[in-house]
């Protein structure tokens, strides 16, 4: 019986302690700077080097290029850029290899959608995904 008494004392002691739970959906959870959430993409920074789609372990990045609208500029620019969040594992390797930081991780982690089609994020969506961009990465 002694052990049970001790246990009860521990429980009672903890009742007066600070509350540890989050009131999550009501209050957003702040995530640390390095948190790996849904990517944000800067089309103007992209040099279409293809490294992100090559390093992706699940092959979830699809991109195509097009000619620069100004014919005097030889550089290719990005045309479409899709990430399939059905299979993206948010491993951060694409942002790690990107030489121009055209793709970065944000702190947005809420990925739930009503339809699977909505998990295909295209260039426009990824460009507008600015809500939780980290201070240091704001363009």
């Amino acid at each position: 019986m002694k052990g049970i008494g001790k246990g009860l004392a521990y429980t009672l002691k903890n009742m007066s302690k600070k509350q540890m739970t989050y009131t999550y959906p009501d209050e957003p959870i702040p995530m640390p700077d390095r948190f790996r959430g849904i990517q944000k993409f800067y089309p103007e920074k992209c040099i279409v080097c293809n490294q992100c789609s090559n390093i992706c372990p699940t092959d979830c990045i699809d991109l195509t290029e097009k000619k620069h609208p100004d014919p005097s500029v030889k550089r290719k620019i990005i045309d479409t850029f899709d990430i399939n969040f059905e299979i993206c594992i948010l491993c951060d390797l694409c942002t790690e290899v990107c030489p121009t930081e055209a793709i970065i991780m944000t702190n947005t982690f809420e990925l739930a959608e009503y339809s699977r089609d909505e998990l295909f994020k295209n260039l426009e969506w990824l460009d507008e995904n600015e809500d939780n961009t980290r201070e240091e990465n704001k363009a």
Binding site: C49, N50, Q51, N54, I55, V97, P99
Partner: peptide, 11 residues
């Protein structure tokens, strides 16, 4: 050279 470093298949 950096952008092309990592891949043979790069355009």
């Amino acid at each position: 050279l950096d952008p092309t470093i990592n891949q043979e298949e790069a355009p």
